[in-house]
Design a protein around this nucleic acid. Structure first.
Lengths: 129, 129
DNA sequence: ATGCCTGCAAAGCCTTTGCATCTGC
DNA sequence: GCAGATGCAAAGGCTTTGCAGGCAT
């Protein structure tokens, strides 16, 4: 990617993500930034989220079957996802596998581990009672 | 869900998943079973995969912003996903977090951990050279 | 015989993309 | 000025769903 220009749209999107801990979806980012940029398009939001995440400025949380979510916090941490509503919370500090862990993965070169927790948020717990 | 009938379609889908270690996507399952049931519809495949996974007969792998994949192997194991092509391999035995691990997840009741590895499969390694 | 299940096709949802225009550098 | 970026809208890919008929129990 050759994109380098800090346009108004990109700056506002990045700023919005950094001032929030809610791990918003693309359309949530879209409505967040429309307060400041009423004419921004959803396509632009997607293009910037794609650029920012693949350049390592933000994190993309991707789970198939659900929407992608984005995180402006680059400090090392993990996530927990609510089984009921999909809401994502932060786990800090991150938990680690024992240092000596070597997964048995024939046919692959292991690059990294991805640890995510599954839980129920308080709002969804109340709904269940 | 009230579905209980072992239809020909459901039996063939389940059988196909159990005789394969490739973690196929829904459309891969579709083409696998069309050998035996040429007139099966993709909708039926999706409905059965949904039923079988939510009844705990098969596993649904939903991670990484790609298509859902399905796994007929219910023995405890983990997965590694190729960064390049999305292929999924098995990790056996599963690696574990230290028994005393308690993630700091304010606002959530933790239910489980989801550990997945990221790597590169041999085919994709050769492409990169 | 009943109502769960299927095939077909259309719709839904999220995301990507083509194109003309605009703008940061 | 020019290539990168935008807005708009259409298209794309995967998944779900409505409906009428079919089949397992």
């Amino acid at each position: 990617m050759i994109q380098t220009r800090m346009t108004k749209q990109r700056a506002v999107i990045l700023d919005a993500l950094r001032h929030v801990t809610s791990h918003p979806t693309a359309d949530e980012v879209y409505s967040m930034v429309r307060n400041k940029l009423p004419h921004i398009s959803l396509g632009t939001v997607y293009r910037n989220l794609e650029y920012l995440s693949s350049s390592g400025t933000i994190r993309r949380l991707e789970r198939a079957g659900q929407q992608m979510r984005f995180d402006g916090n680059m400090a090392p941490h993990q996530h927990i996802r609510c089984q009921g509503c999909g809401m994502v919370g932060d786990i800090f500090p991150p938990v680690e596998l024992p240092a000596c862990t070597k997964p048995n993965a024939p046919g692959f070169d292991v690059l990294s581990v991805d640890i995510e927790f599954v839980g129920v948020c308080h709002a969804c717990q109340e709904k269940r009672q």
